[in-house]
């Protein structure tokens, strides 16, 4: 409920609904009961120390990790139901990975068209048109015949975002999208994400970029030890955190090397 008016806030249209989510790896309980509802058009940033479970949380949304208990409902489909056709359900979610994960055996155009062609059954011409449009959106039209190995990290990530967009997802999931990038390349990727947010895309972003969260997020979640410690508007959580854990974390991240109170 903040920022630009282009976003479709104010409706109760819940796109991602997590209820009492638990996840254990062996005896290690990583998620200890997460409840979260993301509305259409909302941009939610998740911050927290490493090992807090934030990546696991994101990966539970599209079932790359299977929750030990709890339910996940995305765009009306109950992902955690064993009868759920997960391949179909995943079409509504686009995922962007920390390591980009572009398909090394395909060039950029191939990366963008493979899913629309093989999953949605689009023709090659159709798929390429959409692909080129999305490539333009991320500013890499001239690279359509390049192979991933020939691109910089920032370029690969932008292509990865374009790839996810070609499936026309309802929600975009970002798993620390800039953590593997050299600092000077981070800006370009954040710019793309910013413009996506302005266009009204529902986004769930796990990130270390506190400044980005402050500027772009509608809501910020601070996760630590598998639970949501604090959530609210960026002004509140980042500017005036209530919890001490939040304050300590922010102090460490924003002013590394400084002694904390």
């Amino acid at each position: 409920m903040s920022g630009s008016t282009a976003r479709g806030t104010g409706t109760d249209d819940v796109v991602v609904d997590l209820t009492d989510l638990h996840k254990s790896f062996g005896s290690n309980e990583v998620l200890r009961g997460i409840d979260l509802r993301v509305r259409r058009g909302e941009v939610v940033c998740i911050i927290g120390p490493s090992g807090s479970g934030k990546s696991t949380l994101l990966r539970c949304v599209n079932l790359l990790e299977v929750p030990s208990s709890g339910t996940v409902v995305v765009d009306g489909a109950e992902i955690t139901d064993p009868d759920c056709e997960i391949d179909d359900a995943r079409r509504t979610m686009g995922m962007v990975f920390q390591q980009f994960n572009l398909f090394t055996n395909l060039d950029v155009l191939g990366n963008l068209t493979i899913a629309p062609r093989r999953v949605l059954g689009r023709s090659r011409a159709e798929a390429e048109t959409t692909a080129r449009a999305n490539l333009a959106r991320v500013g890499l039209s001239e690279k359509e015949h390049a192979f991933p190995a020939q691109l910089s990290g920032g370029q690969q990530q932008r292509v990865a975002i374009a790839r996810a967009l070609t499936m026309e997802p309802t929600v975009m999931l970002f798993d620390e999208p800039t953590s593997a990038l050299d600092p000077e390349l981070v800006g370009d990727v954040l710019d793309v994400m910013r413009s996506l947010a302005e266009e009204g895309m529902t986004m769930l972003v796990v990130t270390h970029e506190i400044q980005f969260a402050r500027e772009v997020a509608d809501r910020v979640l601070f996760i630590d030890g598998g639970v949501i410690v604090e959530q609210g508007t960026p002004e509140k959580v980042i500017g005036a955190p209530e919890q001490e854990r939040t304050r300590n974390f922010l102090a460490r991240v924003l002013h590394p090397g400084q002694k904390t109170a």
């Binding site: 079409r91 899913a115 999953v119 990865a160």
Partner: peptide, 14 residues
């Protein structure tokens, strides 16, 4: 790399 498989599955590929 597993990431390749995860990316493909995330796009809805069976």
């Amino acid at each position: 790399p597993r990431g390749q498989v995860e990316a493909a599955r995330s796009l809805g590929m069976s």
